[in-house]
């Protein structure tokens, strides 16, 4: 019963998010609205953490599985893929690594700077 109620809350938030996507004329997906709504709900304690925790952790844990069917979809797009398959794979893979390194380096640089200035206060 507990998990049914938790799932209900998560689906209800998803449903409200779906409505927001439909009625708000911005190119923002339901999942973004939903994530923000859920976070606001938790922060304001309208949704207590223990009322969603178990089911939410489970869903997050099996998220990779949910990507399987769309990935298999590659077999339905063979014609388009013939035209840009190589470019698609190379660009997707290479840019991912570039973005990862740049984001990580910038974040680490800012964090180290902050740490240094905080540490410097004492001396």
């Amino acid at each position: 019963m507990k998990y049914i109620k938790q799932l209900l809350i998560i689906l209800l938030v998803s449903f409200i998010a779906e409505a927001m996507e439909y009625f708000i004329p911005l190119p923002v997906a339901a999942s973004v609205y939903g994530l923000i709504l859920m976070l606001l709900g938790l922060m304001t304690h309208i949704i207590p953490l223990e009322k969603v925790e178990g089911t939410a952790d489970y869903l997050v844990g099996i998220m990779a599985l949910m990507f399987v069917p769309p990935t298999v979809g590659i077999m339905a797009t063979v014609d388009e893929l013939k035209q840009m398959g190589v470019a698609l794979v190379v660009i997707s893979a290479v840019t991912t690594l570039i973005i990862m390194v740049v984001t990580g380096k910038v974040a680490q640089f800012i964090l180290n700077k902050k740490k240094k200035s905080e540490g410097g206060n004492g001396s």
């Binding site: 998803s14 939903g34 709504l37 859920m38 938790l42 969603v52 997050v60 949910m66």
Partner: peptide, 13 residues
């Protein structure tokens, strides 16, 4: 997929 993305709010919180 959408409910799971919504659930990412929990580790975030």
């Amino acid at each position: 997929l959408t409910p799971a993305t919504v659930s990412l709010a929990i580790p975030l919180y």
